[in-house]
């Protein structure tokens, strides 16, 4: 699937409701408008239950919006089939979760190779070289053969970061990537995210409760009760 140049992400009046068993549906996102250009580094903040994870899931094509229009890497996501959405997700988005979510039966190198194996069906020599480079760039060239259970929390998250970058995604979605780390490790991971953002030009939307990290982003947007506080013009990071 080809990724078009131009804005990485455009959300227009995105709404999300859940059927909670009553006649009235519960709306958790109320008309979200947001645009992200290439290489932008944006912090998404908000209290618990404000809809941050839901918004991130919709942007990550893991959930669909109830209403509104979304464009990712030039593709109108509402017009794509389930299989096409899966393909676009793999090609355009890199995920970093609060918990590393590495595959425990695979080594660090194999975990980083996983998105490339999904894309190509098996390990290609060029993919292996790329995965090794990525792990070296996060300072883990000595831990290629370690399984996730043999790594510290910070190292696990660095492997997850390398994995998220394996397919050179247009957009990195990071959901509390430092929330489970000590200050030193959190700073390391954040610095790596920032570095990759600058070196590779991937846009990054990072959900964080950490005000000091958020302050180091290009832009901050805040979600409260399913609404972006900043007006759309200001939210254009």
């Amino acid at each position: 699937m080809s990724l078009e140049p131009g804005p990485v992400l455009e959300l227009c009046d995105i709404r999300k409701s859940y059927d909670v068993g009553t006649a009235v549906e519960h709306e958790v996102l109320h008309g979200i408008n947001l645009s992200l250009g290439p290489a932008q580094f944006v912090a998404l903040q908000g209290p618990s239950g404000s809809g941050k994870s839901t918004l991130l899931n919709i942007i990550g094509l893991l959930e669909s919006a109830t209403a509104g229009r979304m464009s990712l890497a030039g593709h109108d996501t509402g017009a794509l089939s389930d299989a096409q959405l899966t393909e676009l997700r793999g090609a355009a988005i890199g995920f970093v979760f609060q918990f590393h979510h590495l595959l425990p039966a695979f080594t660090a190198l194999e975990n980083v190779l996983m998105p490339l194996m999904i894309a190509h069906g098996s390990v290609q020599p060029a993919d292996e070289a790329l995965a090794r480079d990525l792990l070296a760039s996060v300072g883990l060239s000595q831990a290629l053969a370690k399984r996730p259970g043999e790594l510290s929390g910070g190292m696990q998250q660095r492997v997850a970061l390398a994995r998220a970058l394996a397919r050179r995604p247009r957009l990195i979605l990071a959901d509390e990537p430092t929330g489970n780390l000590d200050r030193l490790s959190a700073d390391e991971v954040f610095a790596l995210l920032r570095r990759f953002n600058r070196e590779h030009g991937s846009a990054c939307l990072i959900v964080t409760h950490d005000a000091s990290l958020a302050s180091r982003c290009d832009r901050r947007i805040e979600l409260v009760d399913g609404r972006l506080l900043a007006p759309p013009a200001l939210a254009q990071a």
């Binding site: 990550g60 893991l62 389930d82 299989a83 899966t86 393909e87 997700r89 793999g90 090609a91 995920f95 979510h101 595959l103 425990p104 996983m114 998105p115 999904i118 894309a119 994995r163 397919r167």
Partner: peptide
Amino acid sequence: EIGILRAMGASR
């Protein structure tokens, strides 16, 4: 693991 694989682009 299934969820992560799906997030990384693995099809059904």
